[in-house]
Amino acid sequence: SGVSSGCQQGGCLTCSDYNGCLSCKPRFFMHLERIGMKQIGVCMTSCPPGFYGTRSPERNTCTKCRSECDSCFNKNFCTRCRAGFYLHLGKCQENCPEGLVRSDTQRECVPRCPV
């Protein structure tokens, strides 16, 4: 199938009308973007919030963070939590360990304020 407008993006190496990007140029990440019922490939220099980049010999891909994370370095290290969860040592939890309290503004476990 031919080349479509979606294929003129800078990072795209090969693409098709219906699937968008099929492969990316080196160093770009392949992100699968859902737009209604469609899902197309998009090549990005860095992954969007809520996703992290994984490099491999075949292709670099954007993978979704855990559901409780708003953003993350990788599958096991969150950098910001979703509402109702609190960050502690890279994990998003509903409760904080002993000696720490939940900060709703930062969505983190923080030391108790001295009285």
Binding site: Y18, G20, L32, M37, K38, Q39, G41, T61
Partner: peptide
């Protein structure tokens, strides 16, 4: 069901 496209790499 509702038709939903998936990219081959998904």
């Amino acid at each position: 069901g509702k038709l939903m496209q998936y990219h081959p790499l998904s």
